[in-house]
């Protein structure tokens, strides 16, 4: 071989080795994470219901309205309530409602949050036990993510593991695993993970951060490959130099 060819070959070989090393790091990084098959933002939900059938006298709030704890939502007039009051079976005030002596019950918000799913209107009759609306508690947003994992990957999920939540507008929010729920289908672990995050604040990003918004949640698994240390070290290095 000519010296020129030898030089080309050596430089090329070094290039190939560097390329494969880089690709292997990428590959290892991917091996150490799992991407959700389906994930969405969820909230704690408090249903507003009544134990007495009756007529809705007034509706004070509308859909998606923010309410404070104790704020009145509906008033109902109920004959059976009147009867119970006369019998002295019921207290006049609880956290969820207040009652006047003429049989009018005022349903109030149990928590501060957003009203949704209103099922009734002024003047309509509601049955005992019916849910009239739901209040999504403020500051309770979390992500519910579904993963299909191999048993090996399932074993690598750690308590409090980090999760990267990617909002539809490509903003990334950090979260941690709060609880797991697993069910096995055809040898694959269908895992439902509840992820909490301090970065999810109601109504942020023009209302994008709200219950029901689809997101992508990338779960970081425990890395037990032989490249674990190398990969982490490299990532730390990149962070340190500001990339």
């Amino acid at each position: 071989m000519t010296w020129q060819s030898r030089l080309k070959l050596v430089v090329g070989l070094i290039g190939v080795f560097v390329l494969v090393a880089g690709l292997t790091l990428v590959f290892n990084q991917r091996q150490a994470q799992a991407t959700s098959r389906s994930a969405a933002i969820e909230a704690e939900r408090f249903p507003v219901g009544t134990d007495y059938g009756g007529t809705v006298l007034e509706r004070f709030v509308s859909e998606n309205e923010r309410v404070l704890a104790g704020q009145p939502l509906f008033t109902l007039q109920s004959a059976s309530l009147q009867a119970d009051l006369a019998e002295g079976l019921i207290k006049a005030n609880t956290i969820a409602y207040s009652v006047t002596t003429d049989g009018v019950i005022t349903l109030t918000a149990a928590v501060t949050g957003t009203v949704s799913d209103i099922t009734t209107e002024r003047g309509s009759f509601v049955q005992a036990g019916q849910v009239l609306a739901t209040v999504d508690r403020e500051g309770s947003l979390f992500v519910s993510a579904e993963y299909v994992l191999s048993s090996r990957d399932y074993s690598r999920i750690e308590e409090g593991a980090e999760v990267d939540i990617l909002l539809p507008n490509q903003r990334m929010v950090r979260g941690t695993v709060e609880s797991l729920d697993v069910e096995t289908q055809l040898g694959q672990a269908r895992t439902l993970v509840r992820v909490t995050s301090t970065g999810l604040r109601d109504g942020e990003d023009n209302g994008l951060v709200a219950r029901g918004t689809p997101v992508t949640a990338r779960l970081l698994l425990r890395d037990d490959g032989i490249l674990a240390g190398v990969g982490d070290g490299f990532v730390d290095f990149l962070r340190k130099i500001g990339l």
Binding site: M1, T2, S5, K8, L9, G12, L13, G15, V16, F17, L19, V20, L23, T24, F27, Q31, R152, G225
Partner: peptide
């Protein structure tokens, strides 16, 4: 002249595939 003067790309590609095979086997064993 040596055949390798004319097949540097093939040699490099071969090395690339060889290393990739090693990674693939390592992954599949895992």
């Amino acid at each position: 002249s040596s055949p390798f003067n004319f097949m540097i790309p093939q040699v490099l590609f071969f090395v690339f595939l060889l290393l990739t095979s090693v990674v693939a086997i390592w992954r599949d064993v895992g």
